[in-house]
Design a protein around this nucleic acid. Structure first.
Lengths: 216, 216, 216, 216
DNA sequence: AATGAATGAGGGTTCATTCAT
DNA sequence: AATGAATGAACCCTCATTCAT
């Protein structure tokens, strides 16, 4: 009955918020929230200034929506894969981290890290959201894997949280770098391309973890 | 002739730029460059709006001066210490890194990392300066130490650049965190206090480096 | 042919302009013309923004139509009654003024006085219309009655125009008050309810008119 | 010591708020609050847009200040004169009302009545202020005079409040008219010039008050 | 050298009006 | 006839910068 084919007008209306959020993310990360004009966001999404305000009540609400809208999908997808994994923990971790972070680095999600960093102090709600939805689930996931390695006798009995940080922080830095120095062409000549860097980094950390006398 | 003892007025005058730079660094890092009003900087430095423009021709020039003014000292000091060090490389690295980064984290220098990150894309000159004065000297210094460990047979023959990154990136993240999420009270409950975190992190990395058959 | 009973759609269509005018009058008087949004008028009339523009080419034309549409009927009705009246002039005036103004105060017509007052200076055509259709007929009507009282020896030979003003101005103020201070709950505690006020006021004025030696 | 002659800069700064308030009153009454642009107010006061905001934090605060700033003086002056008056009550009332309202009509104060009327519904605080500072003191003052006339046997024992309204409402209407229809050139041809109208009006009302058997 | 009043360009937001559906 | 998405001119307000004192 009500399944009439959506008119082009309707199709636009449904796509609009997403288009605006994408445009906003790109610009907020590039120039900063304060230095981005609402009109620029609209223009990049291909609409006029007024239209932006049809979908978001203010620039600030747009910012919050940007944070909420992105990452979600990627986080969920990562969680699933990690949870179902089988086999030697070290291999698993290397494989999954390499894959997941490579994907994030290639997607707009990578920009969110910088956006949160630059804007939390002006909009603390952003921080709450980020900790709850990103930091904690992520930390828990990886921590579980590391603990599994220890429990199985594959890893030394190290401090789990510290290892998680050692794994994650450089990855986050990579994301931050991509959207700051990296985007300006200041690519550190010592830095290999991301997937390779990630693998090397994981190897290094896991080498430090490996139990010299496995299940002996 | 000009060696008369400086009057309090003169002393003030010489201190002004530095006071303004400190104020500017704090505010730029807290609110972002674009969201910081020139008058706020002046007020925090205890002078009037007009006075700011007596010392810096524009807000943008003030930003560049802020970047240039800070870090310098800390970098130089660190370089000296590392260069003169003696003894087993691992111990040296742990000791010096712990000490230097702890100092940086406690000083306003730590803020510069965030400032560069947030503003490079709007002012690329900042990036050039940062790479030349901070990234490269720092990388070279630590790289030299790692190489020394390998040369002496203390470390495995790993990729030096990768190790340097593994050492440095989490430290930089710590600085970024301090001035973003951390400043909002979102302290990761898994994160130990900085000096301890640094030491743990260095231990982990160096454990991964250590040669199982030293000088065998 | 066209005498088929009007469908509900047609009935709607004919009622539309009137519903819009009522909504517009209420809102223009409440918030002022400039502060009223076209969409609010439409919403209060139960139609969409676009529909408003089907009936009125612009917000300004809507305003003019509002002025023209109201009052007309009330004015005409009052004129008729006054013209046919018989008996002692004082009684007639008291009776008719009390009745007519009470009716006006209870109807939306009372709002027009305020609307004219607030908007003439921005739309002078409103003033011309108001003077021609309301002020002059009204003044002439009451003036005729007063003159009749003087001619019959019932009233002193006062200045007719001045008396008309003395009668009318407080009534108009009552209307203005109702839609400004009164609508905000600032009812003057000294003010009796309208019909009683009108009667008292008429008594006072007519006491000042009455000839002490009638037809002596 | 601190009585240095005020520089021209200082003199301007002190005069500014007043100049802005005068400009604002004139424009708000002419075009209505909503239809007046902040820049117009500034321009009429001979300053730039930004300067307006140096003295008033928003357009709305400017409106409130306008109401509060005007009338004050005139009200106070009127109160004094009325209080000190001597002689037959009727003469006193005629004299003082004529003089005071003529003065008000010639001053910018007369505009405040219209401003309050047009804007109360959007800014109810205005109403509270107006009732407290203008309506009630004024009513009390005139009421006292009328009561005095009754007490001395000069006036009939009429309803005092009703008389006060009969006296005042036409005067207020005169003020409203001056700044609405009157300002558009729609001068009622039956209306004599204000001072004469006021005197005639007072005569009419007092004739209705006068006791036919004074002190008999 | 220091101040802070003044400026005016710039950016967020609203809303009358249009027009494809 | 009716809708409501889209537009863009207009308006409030901010703030970097200037300059008379």
């Amino acid at each position: 009955m009500s399944s009439a084919p959506p008119t082009s007008r309707q199709r636009r209306k449904e796509a609009r918020p997403s288009e605006l959020l994408d445009a906003a993310l790109a610009l907020f990360v590039e120039k900063g929230f304060a230095a981005t004009r609402a009109e620029e966001v609209a223009a990049r999404a291909g609409v006029s200034k007024g239209t932006l305000y049809l979908y978001f009540p203010s620039k600030e609400e747009l910012l919050k929506a940007v944070i909420g809208h992105t990452l979600m999908a990627d986080i969920a997808r990562g969680a699933e894969k990690l949870a179902q994994a089988e086999g030697p923990t070290a291999d698993l971790l290397v494989e999954l981290m390499t894959e997941w972070w490579s994907a994030v680095l290639d997607s707009p999600s990578s920009a969110v890290f910088k956006l949160v960093m630059t804007e939390v102090r002006n909009f603390p709600e952003i921080g709450q959201y980020y900790v709850r939805e990103v930091v904690e689930p992520g930390h828990r996931l990886i921590g579980t894997m590391v603990q599994r390695g220890i429990d199985r006798g594959e890893f030394r009995a190290v401090d789990v949280d510290c290892v998680v940080h050692a794994i994650v922080l450089p990855m986050v830095m990579l994301c931050l770098h991509k959207h700051s120095m990296g985007a300006c062409g200041f690519t550190d000549p010592h830095l290999p391309p991301p997937p390779q860097f990630i693998r090397q980094h994981m190897d290094l950390v896991l080498h430090g973890l490996r139990n010299p006398t496995p299940a002996a």
